[in-house]
Amino acid sequence: MIKWEGVMPAVTTKFTNDDTLDLAMFEKNIKAQIDAGVHGIILGGTLGEASTLEQDEKETLIKKSLELTDGKIPVIMNVAEQSTKGAIGAAQQAEKVGANGLMLLPPMRYKSTDYETVAYFKAVANSTTLPIMLYNNPVDYKIEVTLDMMEELLECDNIQAIKESTRDITNVIRIQNKFGDRIKVFTGVDTLGLESLVIGAVGWVAGLVCAYPAETVAIYELVKAGRIDEALKIYRWFMPLLELDISPQLVQNIKLAEVATGIGTENVRAPRLPLQGAERERVLKVIGTAMKNRPELPEYKNINSVV
């Protein structure tokens, strides 16, 4: 069982200078996420450079995350494959290694029809007992999970949540109006995080949380407590950083931010390369300005605890 709510970072994968997994820095980052109060860890997403990871590396990351979280929060593995067979294999292997849940993308590279997309999702869901969060991002992946498609997909009991990244936040309300609590809606776009939470999203699959876990969780907890003005103050400061997430170079951007906060390195895996030239200077300026004006956070960790 996963409690589908709260801030779940789509964590970056840390690499050494020799292009192997940097488990020491990975551990430092995950510990910072846990200390800040995140509600789950998502591995191997776009930010995690999933398409460049080998199967044994994915298994290593799952095992290390399970060790660090120690059962306190769920470890969720992303599944993004080109074939249904490959996705089923990846889901089953993640379950075997011990992952607590899955985030499931539509087929990669091929723009499947609605019928094919539903068949793909159902085949994967029916191949595992793990709870699943669907990832709905037609902007980047050109495939939208519509309400009609969701209705079919919810025949699978283990499809329980959706990462809503259409950029149309009213979709949060549409999904909840149609399905109630049957499917838990997370926002998946950093620059729409606060707004989506205010109108009813139960959680936030976040990117800049990788570098700024406390600020991200504080916004969530303050919104949940109805302290919108305090959350908005942090969010206004955060927005120039959050805009670094909606870029093809989001991995490089966020890894630069992790360097600034001391919980990451700039190493990426080719074909990605560190930012160069004017774009690098622009991103460093955004990060530098934010670091100079980093807000003092209110005590947020226990404000929603039931006494």
Rank of each mutant, 00 (worst) to 15 (best):
F238E: 02
Q82G: 15
V202T: 12
D35P: 10
R269E: 02
S65P: 10
I42F: 00
A36H: 03
V251S: 07
Q176R: 14
I287Y: 03
M77C: 15
G86Y: 04
L23F: 11
L244S: 06
V97N: 09
V268K: 00
N267Y: 13
K178C: 05
E243F: 11
R272D: 07
K184M: 03
I254A: 04
D56G: 06
S65V: 08
I132G: 06
I234V: 01
I41H: 07
G89I: 05
L192Q: 15
Q93I: 12
A90E: 12
L273P: 01
E299P: 00
E164T: 04
L147I: 13
K28L: 10
V286P: 07
I159K: 11
K3S: 14
I219L: 04
S112I: 13
N29V: 05
D168T: 11
T69R: 07
T60S: 14
D22E: 09
R269G: 02
V185W: 00
A80K: 02
R167P: 03
Q252N: 04
G89P: 09
L197W: 01
G226P: 05
V217I: 12
D148M: 00
E195L: 10
K96P: 06
L53G: 06
I73S: 06
E57N: 09
E279V: 13
P274C: 01
G48V: 03
I183S: 01
D190L: 04
N29R: 10
R182N: 11
R167F: 14
M1F: 01
L208Y: 11
A50S: 15
Q249A: 13
E67G: 04
L232K: 14
K63T: 15
P106K: 04
Q33Y: 10
V202Y: 08
I159D: 05
A10I: 14
A24H: 02
K292N: 10
V205T: 14
Y110H: 15
I132S: 06
V198L: 12
A32H: 11
Q276D: 09
G37R: 04
R294D: 01
Y120I: 00
E215F: 10
A87L: 06
L250T: 12
M8A: 09
R167D: 12
T146H: 03
A290L: 02
M150C: 04
P107A: 13
F26T: 13
M239K: 05
G180T: 10
D168L: 13
Q82F: 14
S127D: 10
Y300H: 02
G44A: 15
S127K: 09
G45N: 08
V124Q: 08
I88M: 02
A87G: 00
K178Y: 09
D70Q: 01
L105V: 07
A10Q: 08
R294E: 08
L297Q: 07
L53D: 03
A99E: 05
R280M: 06
E116S: 10
I169R: 08
E281I: 06
K163R: 00
S51A: 15
G71P: 02
H39K: 14
L192V: 06
I143P: 00
Q33W: 12
I173M: 14
L242M: 14
K85S: 14
D22R: 06
L297S: 02
D56L: 11
M25H: 11
K163E: 13
V259D: 08
G48N: 00
D148R: 04
A119S: 10
W4C: 09
N304P: 10
N29D: 09
